[in-house]
Design a protein around this nucleic acid. Structure first.
Length: 622
RNA sequence: CGGGAUGUGGCUCAGCUUGGUAGAGCACUGCGUUCGGGACGCAGGGGUCGGAGGUUCAAAUCCUCUCAUCCCGACCA
């Protein structure tokens, strides 16, 4: 027995209560660690564990991982986007946490635990109190002082470090925590996938300069790859936008899944991969059709009720890519109009980046009409008073159709250069599957995925705002160069389920499976079968292999269904029949074949578990 | 924030149109039979019908307000 410091499981399970322990004398007091372990002997029996599985799906759930987590008794909803973890769900969460901690520690990070409640002053100092918006949950204490519940911890960690670290000798430093965050999302959904309260691992690195910070970043990139590989996930690390966190460089770790909220573009040839929000593509201009350019722009054509590109294209009997889409945006720098080909979608992040704006949004139609006198639905780039940004494809489009800035009218035969022009021509659209890779001659494919991790190079954004400095070896006072690194722990569990399930339930990757094996006793009435199961159960405990022993007085069908739903990688089944033949049946959750082991020699069974432990998952019974 | 939908025992839902004793299945308790893929019989326990107000002799049902939850959308061209 390795876990209790050399003391056998059996020894402790016989003296299960305080009385027995204290009578044993010798000053033995059951401390926390042992108590946890003592109880585990019991709670790994299905009959004793609080594991409420559901036959029917609660009406609240739509997405698969959410439905399965509810049915498997892992989580329960308390309020929108706020969930309780039940024992089974918590075990999966803890398994992911354990992997995260191991890899973070190996990468040289040190664990801390920061307060969830944070004073407004810090956020005002970083200027995010105003900038962060409604997602920041704010409240007052009894003295009417402003506080928030931390959605992220750059401020707190920077404050902590600036007060402690004075010299380059103390750097680099990487501190992390696993903690509850709260972000007051507009629309929480899909269970743990987009909750408001959620468990996050967040790490923050501090370095002397950009070169050192890049090394820290790379170390985290590597650690994250290990973490998600060990969790048995099929993922990609992709270039991403840094959003509200800030900074100038970041990667997202995305688990590939149809139900994912993110779309990622990746090259079929090289290793280029980016969030579509960020993805670039190579642009090869096509020539303009000369003959039609001779004709002048038309007068305004009455196009009643043609407010969408589809309507307009249908009206003129052309394809959508012969029209242009003109959209009015508002940012902290004022209004602007963005013009893209009719069949393309504006990439707001690219627009924001080109403008250099802090925020960008689509104003309500009424505001565009009232403030600018422009009729939404009939907009065009000709003779407008606000700045116009044009996508790089538009100048190569030839005669096009656009709104006439007059309600119910459009123009056609509009030509770039002749009829309108502007200073800013740039890549403004969302990348699309089939476009050329910006790095090589391959093409892009688009996949959906779930963002489970995100790493950022922050630079000196926060160290400057909060004045976190150190004295360098040359005696110069410098700002620390920071990075921050997050993993959605609960979301990783959900993503793992999203990627590993079938119609019968979850199929946990071995590494994060709450129980590695289910032992189904099909004949509780049979004393010899039960005695053997008990012995085997104890042997699993002794070997420190997490096991769920189904000792419930239920019919076999119920046990099989639950074992499939709960997704234990290995299922062991013993009934009267098998016992008479002297065999126990083993089946892997992710395969249909099964294998029988002789009851009097289970050596090959133990080597199966050794192999699973080593390979983490995905092996066969051969 | 806008749009759509739904709130009835722990879960899934019916009942509402046309007001008149709150229902079914699952789950739960007891007994019996059954026992290798979600068994069956008998007997039970459990519900302010999301909340408030109104109409009425009478409201789960009609009206008003409100709260909660889920889904769609942050695309005007």
């Amino acid at each position: 027995m390795t876990r209790c410091g050399g003391v056998s499981t059996r020894a402790y399970s016989v003296c299960r209560d305080y009385d027995t322990l204290s009578k044993a004398g010798k000053g033995v007091r059951p401390h926390c660690f042992l108590l946890c372990f003592l109880s585990s002997e019991d709670f790994m029996r299905f009959s004793r564990m609080h594991l409420p599985t559901l036959k029917e799906v609660p009406a609240e759930a739509e997405v698969l991982s959410h439905r399965l987590m509810l049915r498997a008794g892992m989580i329960r909803r308390l309020a929108a986007g706020i969930y309780s973890y039940l024992p089974f769900g918590l075990m999966a969460l803890r398994n992911v946490e354990a992997i995260v901690r191991q890899e973070m520690n190996l990468a040289g990070a040190q664990e801390v635990l920061l307060p969830a409640v944070q004073p407004a002053e810090l956020w005002q100092e970083s200027e995010r109190w105003d900038f962060y918006g409604k997602e920041l949950l704010r409240f007052k204490d009894r003295h009417q002082r402003d506080f928030c519940f931390g959605p992220t911890h750059e401020e707190v960690i920077t404050d902590l470090v600036r007060n402690e670290v004075r010299s380059y000798r103390q750097l680099p430093l990487n501190l992390y925590q696993v903690q509850t965050k709260f972000r007051d999302e507009i629309r929480p959904r899909f269970g743990l996938m987009r909750g408001r309260e959620f468990i996050m691992k967040d790490a923050y690195s501090f370095d002397v300069d950009d070169v050192a910070a890049t090394l820290s970043y790379q170390a985290m990139h590597e650690a994250y790859s290990h973490i998600f590989s060990r969790c048995g996930l099929n993922f990609r690390a992709v270039e991403a936008d840094s959003g509200a966190i800030g900074g100038n460089f970041s990667h997202e770790f995305v688990v590939l899944a149809e139900s994912g909220e993110d779309a990622i573009a990746s090259c079929t040839k090289c290793d280029y991969a980016a969030n579509v929000e960020k993805a670039q593509s190579k642009f090869v201009p096509e020539s303009v059709i000369e003959s039609e350019v001779e004709l002048p722009v038309s007068d305004a054509v009455a196009t009643p009720d043609c407010e969408s590109i589809e309507d307009v294209a249908a009206f003129f009997k052309v394809s959508p890519n012969a029209t242009i889409k003109s959209m009015v945006f508002e940012s902290d720098l004022g209004f602007c109009m963005v013009v893209v080909p009719g069949d393309r979608e504006v990439n707001e992040l690219k627009v924001k980046a080109i403008l250099g704006a802090n925020w960008l949004e689509i104003p309500p139609s009424a505001r565009v009409a009232d403030d600018l006198g422009l009729p939404v639905g009939y907009l065009g780039p000709l003779e407008v008073s606000i700045p116009v940004l044009v996508d790089r494809m538009v100048p190569h489009m030839g005669p096009m159709i656009c709104g006439a800035n007059r309600n119910g009218y459009h123009l056609h035969r509009v030509c770039w250069g002749r009829d309108f022009t502007c200073e800013t021509v740039a890549d403004l659209v969302l990348a699309r599957a089939g476009e050329l890779c910006p790095r090589c001659d391959g093409s892009l494919q688009i996949d959906r995925g779930i963002e489970v991790g995100h790493i950022f190079k922050l630079g000196t954004k926060y160290s400057e705002k909060l004045n976190a400095t150190f004295l360098d070896h040359d005696g110069q006072e410098k700002h620390m160069v920071m990075g921050c690194y997050g993993i959605g722990v609960g979301r990783t569990v959900a993503a793992a389920i999203e990627q590993n399930h079938d119609e019968n339930g979850i199929s946990f990757p071995y590494a994060i499976a709450p129980f590695k094996v289910a032992l189904l006793n099909l004949d509780l009435k049979s004393a010899e079968v039960t005695a053997f199961c008990e012995k085997l159960y104890q042997e699993f405990l002794r070997r420190n292999i997490s096991i769920l022993y189904d000792d419930r007085n239920e019919r076999p069908g119920v046990k099989f269904k639950d074992a499939d739903l709960l997704g234990m990688p290995v299922r062991l089944t013993l009934g009267r029949r098998g016992f008479k033949q002297g065999i126990i049946e083993a089946k892997l959750r992710n395969s249909t074949e099964s294998k029988e082991f002789p009851l009097d020699n289970l050596d090959s069974l133990w080597s199966l578990f050794d192999e699973l432990e080593t390979n983490d998952s995905r092996i066969s019974l051969k």
